[in-house]
């Protein structure tokens, strides 16, 4: 008996398949249960959240979410995260693109040293530079400003960006830019008009990778920003939890508010995001 690609399945095989599918679905449900519990608990009165953890809410309501959004400065947290993420991702893509391009396009003295520098940056744990970085930020007078996060985030994301973009530029034919250069276009113009538009897919995965890690970064945000009005989402969440630590309904609503947009973006662009997030790992 040889395995055939799509035979008519025997009833037993069909049942086995169905059982497997049900098991898998059960597993998936268990896996997803924390999210469901979080969103549903937000709609339950606080005293029932832990006394009757399984009970569904009596009705679906929106008020707790609105209350959490107004009560905690989620508006401000989102705005701060947005500004910090946008700036550091833009910087990472732009400067990482420049550097990756330079490393792919030309041969020059110091090239290998630069590559090695960024390679080290790929494996360096943040703790390796955390303490002096804190002192540096302080010395530069950047403490409690958004720059205290933007610059370090860019520096942290640049190595992977350089590596991914360099690999991409290496895969493009060299002749592409040469005719334009012969026509007298400046290297900057060649980069912006010819190479960068072609590198959009790679740039996009770099952007996704950087955006998610910046948006979710906690340690630096927690250590460098103490001004309530400048907190980003993760460190704002910590402050929010500290102030409302027993207003469980509000807390669950807050957690839901923070995860909902991320999950929504993820569902809309999941293919893109999965590729972006794993791109770094497989190239490494």
């Amino acid at each position: 008996m040889t395995p055939s690609p799509s035979p008519a399945l025997s009833p037993w095989a069909l049942i086995a398949k169905a059982v497997g599918w049900i098991l898998m679905a059960g597993l998936a449900l268990a896996f997803f249960a924390p999210f469901l519990w979080m969103a549903l608990s937000a709609m339950k009165p606080a005293e029932k959240i832990f006394s009757e953890p399984w009970a569904p809410p009596e009705r679906l309501v929106l008020e707790p979410f609105i209350a959490a959004f107004q009560e905690a400065r989620f508006g401000a947290y989102f705005w701060n995260s947005l500004v910090v993420t946008a700036a550091s991702v833009a910087g990472t893509v732009l400067f990482g693109g420049f550097a990756g391009y330079a490393l792919a396009r030309w041969r020059f003295r110091g090239q290998n040293a630069t590559l090695a520098l960024f390679l080290i940056g790929l494996i360096l744990p943040v703790q390796a530079y955390l303490i002096p970085l804190r002192l540096l930020i302080e010395a530069l007078g950047l403490l409690d400003t958004r720059w205290a996060l933007i610059f370090p985030y860019m520096a942290m994301e640049l190595p992977i960006a350089v590596y991914i973009l360099r690999a991409f530029f290496l895969s493009l034919p060299r002749e592409l830019g040469e005719s334009a250069a012969l026509d007298g276009a400046s290297p900057l113009a060649v980069f912006f008009h010819i190479y960068l538009p072609l590198a959009l897919p790679a740039a996009a995965s770099v952007a996704v990778l950087a955006a998610l890690s910046v948006w979710n970064e906690f340690l630096l945000a927690f250590l460098f920003i103490h001004d309530e009005s400048l907190r980003t989402v993760p460190s704002g969440l910590l402050a929010f939890q500290g102030i409302h630590s027993t207003d469980y309904q509000l807390l669950f609503a807050g957690l839901t508010i923070v995860s909902a947009p991320l999950i929504a973006v993820y569902v809309l662009a999941q293919r893109f995001m999965i590729e972006g997030l794993t791109a770094g790992a497989l190239k490494g």
Binding site: V83, V89, H193, L196
Partner: peptide, 25 residues
């Protein structure tokens, strides 16, 4: 498209220049 990509990139980066300190109340 190319042009707007460039503009967006620059705007994103330069945007916080203006607003970074304003929030630092």
């Amino acid at each position: 498209l190319r042009k707007s990509f460039r503009v967006v990139l620059l705007a994103l980066f330069l945007g916080p220049l203006a607003s970074c300190r304003r929030g630092a109340d």
